[in-house]
Write a protein that binds this DNA or RNA. Structure first.
Length: 112
DNA sequence: CACCTGACCGTGT
DNA sequence: TACACGGCCAGGT
């Protein structure tokens, strides 16, 4: 595994998040076996702008807060994309966060 | 080559 | 409750 594969792994997981569900940076990092790399997951999302196949709006922070909304076009694009998928967002906060939370550790099989 | 800067998170005081 | 700290990855200056 070369070093640059980390972002790719992140994208691979994010791509599998079902519409209408969300997960967190930390959950992805943990799934990849590097629980301390949550920050790097965020950086991967920042770099994911070239990747239309990566639904970055489905990744929020551990509190269900849309911390990365400023990196989308406009002011509310991230929220609108989510609401478009049936996710209710209010004041940058995902409602029923725990309910629609998608944990790769549980939903996804160990590594892919 | 030595910093610096980010879509974060857990722990400690 | 609030802040400080270390760890993670990649690219820029």
């Amino acid at each position: 595994m070369s070093d640059g594969d980390f972002f790719e792994k992140v994208y691979k997981v994010v791509r599998q998040i079902p519409a209408g569900r969300v997960t967190s940076y930390g959950a992805i990092a943990k799934y990849l076996g590097t629980p301390r790399s949550s920050r790097a997951v965020g950086y991967a999302m920042n770099a994911a702008h070239n990747r239309p196949e990566v639904p970055a709006q489905r990744v929020v922070n551990r509190n269900g807060l849309l911390t990365g909304k400023h990196h989308f076009q406009g002011t509310n694009l991230m929220q609108q994309l989510l609401e478009n998928e049936g996710v209710v967002v209010q004041k940058d906060q995902v409602q029923d966060f725990q309910k629609i939370f998608w944990d790769p550790l549980l939903e996804l099989k160990p590594l892919d």
